[in-house]
C-alpha cells in the first residue's frame, strides 16, 4: 500500500472512532484526541502547535455552543 493509501485508511478509521467517541465519551474530549491524532498523522511534528491549535479551536467552539447556540453537545466522562 502506498503511503497516501495508508494515510487514507488510517484517517477513515480515525473518523469512525471519532464519531463513536463523540457519542460515548463526549464531543470536546473526543475532538481533542482526534485533532492531535490527525495532525500527527498528517505530519505536524510540533507538540506546542498541536496542543495550542486544538485547545484554541475547541475553546472558541465551546464559547459558540454555550453562548450562541444553547445546544447540549454530547458529553461524557470529562466534557
Amino acid at each position: 500500500m502506498t503511503r497516501s493509501g495508508l494515510d487514507l485508511a488510517v484517517t477513515l478509521g480515525l473518523l469512525v472512532l471519532y464519531v463513536l467517541g463523540i457519542i460515548h465519551v463526549g464531543f470536546f474530549t473526543a475532538s481533542f484526541v482526534f485533532m492531535i491524532c490527525q495532525m500527527a498523522l498528517m505530519g505536524q511534528r510540533r507538540p506546542v502547535v498541536m496542543v495550542s491549535v486544538s485547545i484554541g479551536l475547541l475553546a472558541v467552539l465551546y464559547g459558540v455552543v454555550e453562548v450562541f447556540l444553547n445546544v447540549a453537545m454530547p458529553s461524557g466522562l470529562l466534557f
Binding site: 482526534f34 485533532m35 490527525q38 495532525m39 505536524q44 502547535v49 486544538s54 479551536l57 467552539l61
Partner: peptide
C-alpha cells in the same frame, strides 16, 4: 493541511 484538515472535521 495538517492543521486545516482536523479543524474542518471538528
Amino acid at each position: 493541511n495538517s492543521i486545516l484538515a482536523p479543524a474542518i472535521v471538528v
